[in-house]
């Protein structure tokens, strides 16, 4: 059974319909890239998947024992965070908060999970450092470690390499691919970067064109919309 099923979903923003006819399923272990231009509804779709925003119509279901709040989310950085005095440990630990319920303090096992995630992402040496003093790539790793605290099954990444330089961006992509491959974590990534999408993803959802494209990477490369995008990029990928 699929982890996420979208049935004829229509999404809108302040009364205006942005995307309609969304029909797709995401299975455990998939790596789905949601691509499309600005304004094509990527962010709105992501908010709907996270249940921050209700769809105008249609249904978004979770299945395969994925609970609605078990999606680890890697948001884009907000202004608040740029000057936030918090240590890496504190931030990663806050990802485990949904395991606490009403209990006011973290248990040992939650601290252990946080520590494991910090080490897994190779930021163990930064654990005591202040978040605002880290480089962009290191900050993204911290937020990714936090997201892993909230889930064992699915990650939802919003432009995870925005603002990173190419080398760091490539490292970030490799890291995400590794989590998908070795831990079996389902990845849903919102991205501008179609080249990276066809390189790493197993499935592609292309918003902004009628009809919307959803399918495997191989289908995408053979589809009209896929071909036209690949042609623009000079077929550099493959």
């Amino acid at each position: 059974m699929a982890q996420i099923i979208c049935r004829d979903v229509v999404l809108g923003y302040e009364g205006k319909i942005v995307v309609k006819g969304l029909d797709f399923s995401v299975f455990g272990g998939d790596y789905l890239c949601i691509v499309g231009e600005n304004g094509s509804g990527k962010t709105t779709l992501m908010k709907a998947l996270l249940r921050l925003k209700a769809p105008v119509s249609g249904q978004i279901l979770t299945g395969d024992s994925l609970k609605p709040y078990e999606i680890g989310y890697l948001p884009q950085q907000t202004n608040v965070q740029k000057d936030f005095p918090a240590s890496v440990e504190e931030i990663v630990l806050s990802g485990c908060l949904n395991r606490c319920g009403w209990r006011p303090f973290y248990k040992k096992e939650e601290r252990q999970i946080a520590e494991d995630n910090i080490n897994k992402l190779g930021i163990g040496h930064l654990a005591k450092r202040c978040y605002r003093e880290l480089s962009g790539g290191q900050q993204q790793r911290v937020l990714l470690a936090r997201a892993l605290g909230a889930t064992r099954k699915m990650l939802l990444l919003d432009e995870p390499v925005a603002g990173l330089d190419p080398v760091v961006a490539a490292e970030m992509y490799e890291l995400i691919a590794k989590l998908n491959r070795e831990e079996g974590i389902t990845v849903i990534m919102v991205s501008h970067d179609i080249a990276a999408a066809v390189r790493y993803a197993s499935h592609i959802l292309h918003l902004g064109y009628e009809p919307l494209f959803f399918g495997t990477k191989a289908d995408y490369l053979n589809s009209d919309v896929g071909k036209s995008f690949m042609a623009v990029m000079g077929g550099a990928v493959q």
Partner: peptide, 23 residues
């Protein structure tokens, strides 16, 4: 403040993340 310290931290640092993960 003491009872909800960790929640207050999470909500202050990143409201959307907290909301999306069930806080």
């Amino acid at each position: 403040f003491l009872l909800f310290y960790h929640k207050i931290f999470a909500v202050t640092f990143d409201e959307n993340f907290a909301l999306a993960t069930g806080t």
